[in-house]
């Protein structure tokens, strides 16, 4: 092949390079776009997963009703939007607070009592609660889909050639804020330290004068509050129906296992990894395999590092 050295030839090379360059640029953008999508998705999963991890870490139960709590929070934000005109993003602290109270009530009414029961009951109680709430929602509000039509975060932000969906960005920022709050709370406050003590050794904590029931209820409420925040942010862009939380709950469970049971930071990191695997892996390997990829990653972690990426290992 002749390499042109004269000026017109030089120009010709440049010209011929242009479309090639444009093509490569497009490919890079595609990857960046996928990565961004995965990161945003992961942060949203993370918000659901952190509450799940907190509850497990403190009282050793897997909250199978977590997805249902997210669903209830989504309905809550929807009704606030519909009847009071409150945007889901704005009402998210309110929903989180409400879900905190709801969680504490559920703990005192049901979970606290079952915790003293046999292992099987502890395992199944949240499972039953989840089914109950999903069916209750279907009974009360019909299986119809609901949607917040015009959220304030509605729209798209273009970062160079990358599309960033604003509602997802808001949810991700919210997720990071909640992660920060939980981190601060568990490490810096007296109640948080007591919660840590319970998760390390319940009996010793009780002997030191920590009120286990009260703090368990508090931790359960906190877990529900983060599910509530997740629901509120999701409601700003996702459709709402009784079964909506199930898949989020399931993915969150894997994120928690991946990040390490009991570690909220681990849950967030696990969720982000899942989001990226789902989006990038789904694109490269084939979208029909994207959930399979998540579970393969999970299996690998379980084999190589059974307690998860950041798990405490204590039970």
């Amino acid at each position: 092949m002749r390499i042109p050295v004269d000026p017109p030839g030089f120009l010709a090379v440049k010209a011929s390079k242009l479309p090639v360059y444009a093509h490569i640029d497009w490919g890079d953008c595609m990857f960046l776009q996928l990565f961004t999508g995965g990161l945003l998705l992961g942060c949203i999963y993370g918000l659901v997963a952190m509450g799940l991890s907190l509850i497990y870490g403190v009282m050793g139960i897997v909250n199978f009703a977590h997805g249902a709590f997210v669903m209830l929070a989504m309905y809550g934000s929807f009704w606030l939007y519909k009847f009071l005109g409150l945007d889901p993003v704005i009402s998210s602290p309110l929903i989180a607070l409400f879900m905190f109270g709801f969680g504490v009530a559920i703990y005192h009414l049901i979970i606290g009592k079952v915790l003293k029961g046999p292992f099987l009951a502890r395992l199944l109680v949240t499972f039953g609660l989840g089914i109950f709430f999903v069916n209750l929602a279907q009974f009360l509000w019909s299986p119809d889909y609901k949607m917040v039509q015009k959220s304030i975060t509605h729209g798209i932000l273009m970062v160079g050639p990358i599309f960033v969906e604003l509602p997802k960005l808001a949810a991700s920022v919210g997720s990071l804020v909640v992660a920060g709050l939980i981190y601060w709370f568990v490490r810096k406050t007296k109640t948080g330290l007591a919660i840590q003590a319970i998760s390390i050794d319940t009996q010793a904590a009780a002997l030191m004068g920590i009120n286990i029931q009260r703090l368990n209820a508090f931790a359960f409420g906190l877990g529900c509050a983060s599910a509530g925040a997740a629901g509120a942010f999701l409601a700003s862009f996702y459709y709402i129906f009784p079964d909506v939380g199930t898949m989020f709950g399931l993915v969150a469970l894997v994120a928690v296992a991946l990040g390490g049971f009991g570690s909220t930071e681990g849950a967030l990191i696990g969720a982000i990894i899942i989001g990226i695997i789902e989006t990038v892996g789904g694109f490269i390997v084939g979208s029909e395999y994207k959930y399979a990829l998540i579970f393969v990653a999970y299996l690998l972690i379980v084999i190589i590092r059974p307690r998860g990426l950041l798990g405490w290992g204590a039970d």
Partner: peptide
Amino acid sequence: VPYTYRATDVTSEVLKLK
């Protein structure tokens, strides 16, 4: 492009179409 109908997010599927 096949996908799971219970998927929570379809960014990768849609980018494939794009």
